[in-house]
Design a protein around this nucleic acid. Structure first.
Lengths: 185, 185
DNA sequence: AGTTGGGCTTAAACTATCTTAAGTTTAAAT
DNA sequence: ATTTAAACTTAAGATAGTTTAAGCCCAACT
């Protein structure tokens, strides 16, 4: 699945494929396990082969904000921590039993040097990630909670069934109580 | 300035530099001129050599939302429109008399093929843009208007003086009246 | 079977933010 | 310099969202 994901944007020969896979050990993650800890430096980039994850931030008052969901076939990490070696702002938790490939920061750097085509792959990946986040910002500053909720279930219908409403509320930036009242309308 | 900007992440030889510059005509843009029109496909990537810009979206009710500011030394476009050839969601307007380099989509593709090192440059550029937008999303869903306003003037002190409060309010996602009352506190 | 805890709903009281509208200040244009 | 339009402020009343608290349902544990 990870090769197919990369194959969407670039094509690798068999030797490059095996080289890549050798630097990407996979691990299985049971439901509720946390693979990125807020406050620690995160030096691993993950690819979700199966299952799904939720990334959330906990503020000083204990309020939880869901930064992103990572369903299968997604790359995920705290990119700021991964790139700049600063403490992570988020924790990443498995929503269900999952399988991920792990790419360490040093292997990431090595891979980009050994297989320069991967620069293009990640360039496109981050370009799309940037677009996605920018659209989310626009949603956040211009739409009502109801519109954002409808957008969410339209864009991620599968996720919407898998996660709790409390988590959806914290993704939208409202309380679960208010989301509940919005849904009733 | 644009060569210095690129030099932050990769190094180009003189021939590459001249090849690059030959594909990046520069234009001067008078204050208030619009160089990206919401609704039209945007096939140009801009680099702000001097001056500054504001990108905003206008919704059906005429409400304006500021998606981003682009001060000098920034790359800017409607990335979704540029990459996917869909109508632009934003208009880009000069805040003052400015100078920009323009890179067309076809020259962009050509350059990346001719100078593969640029893949790395843009990979890093988009990686940082993604991080920035993700932090802004977290701000939007977890902070109060007051906190977001203070963050804004702390992160962009120069911009905060150059733009109107109406524009800052529409960047934060609140009305100018409310921002005014927040400032009074 | 009984208990515990989490997630969902409802409701009341409270706070944040919007809308509208008026008055004032600032900046642009003549 | 005068005029005009836009930006900023203020304030009152409306709507959106939070907080707290209670109750219900369902799954997990004892």
């Amino acid at each position: 699945m990870i090769l197919k994901n990369i194959g969407k944007h670039i094509s690798l020969n068999p030797s490059e494929k095996s080289q890549l896979l050798s630097l990407l050990p996979s691990i299985s993650v049971p439901k509720k396990e946390i693979i990125i800890d807020q406050g620690r430096i995160c030096d691993t980039l993950f690819f979700v082969e199966s299952g799904s994850f939720r990334a959330y931030n906990l503020n000083k008052d204990g309020k939880e904000s869901t930064i992103m969901f990572a369903p299968k076939d997604w790359w995920v990490t705290d990119m700021n921590s991964f790139l700049n070696k600063v403490p992570s702002l988020l924790s990443l938790e498995a929503l269900e039993n999952s399988m991920v490939y792990t790419l360490s920061r040093s292997n990431f750097d090595d891979l980009l040097n050994k297989i320069p085509k991967l620069e293009r792959f990640f360039r496109i990946l981050f370009q799309k990630a940037y677009i996605r986040e920018q659209l989310r910002v626009l949603d956040n500053i211009s739409l009502t909670t109801e519109e954002r909720y409808l957008n969410f279930i339209r864009k991620y219908p599968d996720l919407a069934e898998k996660v709790t409403q409390k988590q959806i509320a914290s993704y939208l930036g409202v309380t679960p109580e208010f989301l509940s009242s919005v849904k009733k309308k």
